[in-house]
Design a protein around this nucleic acid. Structure first.
Lengths: 213, 213, 213, 213
DNA sequence: CATGAATGAGTGTTCATTCAT
DNA sequence: CATGAATGAACACTCATTCAT
């Protein structure tokens, strides 16, 4: 039917099938146990291949780590960015839309474990931090900055310091995924976070604040 | 005056000097490199003692880790808690006071590296997480909850879900110290965070929100 | 003829070659130097492999110890037992046959070092002692008991307490191998024991005693 | 009353009190756990002194071991020897007397753990083996040989090879104390040995043998 | 004399990495 | 391409030994 379309797809998949499963398994384990506590043998086993095969695709455990981070962020982020930039409507709705689509596209996916990883291992992988800043932090922050700027330009938001405003929108999102991957799994119901309620509350506070005048 | 009384005091202090230096060195290195990437020998060396001496005071690397958390957080936290509970004035001032005294007593000290440690290693040390929750998270959250409740009871704050409200005050504080200990050290001026401006902006947004009605 | 069938056989043998050499080396060294004085690295080196390889086959030094005992005694013992049970003839000849075939099958082999090992380390390995009793002591004693009972039933031996009778046949055999592996190697000719003469003398005394009426 | 007699005694005791307790504690632990598995700290603790004090009296753990062996044999053996040599009566009674006084003076005392120690560590302490042979084995064997020779000379015993005859009297005695200190402590009643019954049975067999003609 | 804090060489064990098959 | 047996450097932890007090 579509041999022309299938051929390259199959070839590409052939070449990336193993690495894809390895990267996925590695992400799971790195997020769950941390970099050093994760054994490459376990990664290989979970991906259904042998230890030797892993080293066929990734020259070292550190390279595997870098590949995991590199693999699991660009896609999600750019899709999120695209969605937001095409939004039309009030800035408060845009903010709401940004938070919830972030949850859909990033926060609820496996990629949400990467910030915890980056945070833990930042000191040991300086080049990776540079890459992460360039590929994730800067575009992400720029995106949030655009929303704030739009709101202020349209008179919908109070004037605010852009840099710190961005951080203060970002912080609760980061908190959500860090919590999910650290204290979440080993805590009782009392400390579990329901993302929708959490994000709704964040929006409410972001927009109107606590103060009753 | 009392040389006889002083002598034993000095001796007692001698006895605790080593553990103190070890805990301090361990905190530094754990925060900087993570738990497993830190070698006990390096901790000992930085504290000016031998590897054997370290094991004289802490039966294992894991116990050292626990001791670091215990030593460098419980005290600070309870001092912070005490200060806040004696506060009198408007709830918005109380919130401001809480944030800035938190920065003074915890955020700006070395102890601020511990949350990053805890988040990174949570998966591998369930019992330590239990200890941390009981000793740090629960009292800290309770403190913030008391502030929110007070503000709502006095009609100064809008009604808000207590649990999520606490998380949303906490998130930016946590973000600040996590950033400081991960991306902070290896980033340029552009991404540095000035704590005072940051906390002021947080307060502004917490109290009044972005929305210009 | 059956090259296909041979290939896997050779492979299977390959797979067991290493453990066999390791067990043999471990037996030598354990007997020579004792359990704790033997370094696993030395065992590996003598077997021609690296330290890591040893731990590929035996999860710990203690497990290596257990495997040595299992491997080098159960087989020998059961072969000895089989031989004796098929004996037909006078009970005094049976006793003679038992002692000499014990020497052939056990006393003169490397396995004869194991009793010394067991006695030395009994206090530190209670579970191994249980295994050894069940696997070696009980069957061995039962075998000797059968010989005594047969002799008494046929009126060839005086009545005797079975339990202590067994110990008193066993004691000189044990003495022989203990001596061989402890004082033997470092003593002059004067204290060397010739097993055949020794066993002949034991038989003579066992059967007729010292007393000249 | 007897100051002259007391003074030197007290002085001697002063000097040897600590070493005596240390040697006693060391003997217990060496017998129970083996040489390497025994920690000097535990020896010191059981003797009621500090680790440092132990090294005040014994320059090294090996020296402690040697001292333990040296200390705990000469006395017992020579007293036994004296008793036997003054015996008058039939040679069979002499043999009985030798076995039971051996049990009284050696087999039932703490010194009975030394043969196990010597056996286990013979390979690691060659000089000690030489000392042991000279001080214990040779005199002990000579003693037994004298009994045999006396019996043969008086026509009470059959002619027998002296060297192997000695070994065959010795073997059950050695077996008794080895068993007591290895399998004895961790075995059930079934495998316990009652020394008196054991020695009686040994005598019976030694003198008259199993054979019913 | 006695102590016990301090040491550091030594050991069992792990695990990322290699390579012959 | 894929394997998994083999490696050996690295690390946590131990413990005999020292020495200032």
């Amino acid at each position: 039917m579509l041999p022309i379309a299938n051929a390259p797809t199959r070839r590409a998949r052939r070449k990336d099938a193993r690495p894809g499963e390895l990267l996925s398994a590695a992400l799971d384990l790195f997020v769950e146990k941390g970099f050093s506590a994760t054994r490459v043998e376990e990664v290989a086993h979970r991906a259904g291949v042998s230890k030797g095969t892993l080293f066929l695709y990734f020259p070292s455990k550190e390279d595997l780590f870098k590949a995991v981070v590199r693999e699991h962020l660009s896609d999600h982020l750019s899709r999120w960015s695209d969605e937001i930039d095409h939004f039309e409507g009030s800035s408060r709705d845009m903010l709401r839309y940004a938070l919830f689509s972030w949850w859909e596209l990033i926060g609820s996916t496996k990629a949400s474990g990467i910030p915890k990883l980056m945070m833990s291992e930042a000191g040991n992988f300086p080049e990776l931090v540079a890459f992460y800043r360039q590929e994730v932090i800067e575009p992400g922050n720029a995106l949030l900055a655009r929303i704030l700027q739009r709101g202020m330009a349209r008179g919908e938001f109070h004037p605010i310091d852009l840099k710190y405003g961005v951080f203060l929108i970002l912080a609760p999102l980061l908190f959500l995924v860090l919590w999910k991957h650290s204290f979440g799994p080993c805590c009782d119901q009392h400390t579990q976070i329901d993302p929708v309620t959490y994000l709704e509350t964040q929006l409410e506070m972001l927009l109107h604040g606590l103060s009753a005048h």
